[in-house]
Nucleic acid binder design. Sequence first.
DNA 1: GCCAACGTTGGC
DNA 2: GCCAACGTTGGC
Length: 155
Amino acid sequence: MADWLVKSEPTVYSIDDLARDRIEIWDGVRNYQARNFLRQMQESDRVFVYHSNAKPPGLAGLAEVVEANVIDPTQFDPASPYYDPKATPDKPRWYTVKLGYVATFADLVPLDTLKATFTPDEFVLVRRGNRLSVMPVEGAIAPRLLALTTLRKET
DNA sequence: GCCAACGTTGGC
DNA sequence: GCCAACGTTGGC
């Protein structure tokens, strides 16, 4: 089982939204490197949810992959901001996953804490200039992340 | 294939 | 609001 991290702007879609929706398709990723990571995700992989463009930015909770390798339907929808005229149902270009809510962190783990805990070498997230919205969380990192906070399950 | 222009991300 | 980083586009 692998660990991943996805970014989301909480004003657009937050961990609270996921707690409410329970399951959501993670659509709208339009970056090839991020897409390639999405395609590597397997059912029941663990996913850390990160709030970007927030005050403060940081890790907000946990999700899991409930369905892998889902074709992102917004690429075919001219009304969607994520519409891609070069994608066709025959040749889809953008894939994603469905995420299920797992838990909310009792306290958000701020980016400052992450920077103090991990070196840029060991964790992509704290690497300078990193703009990836989907990234792997290497084996040793995940338990150290979980040790920084307490889980709270929204019901 | 090169690279300048442009757009987006995201911390601050 | 600013701006560094960096991905994408398109002219050549």
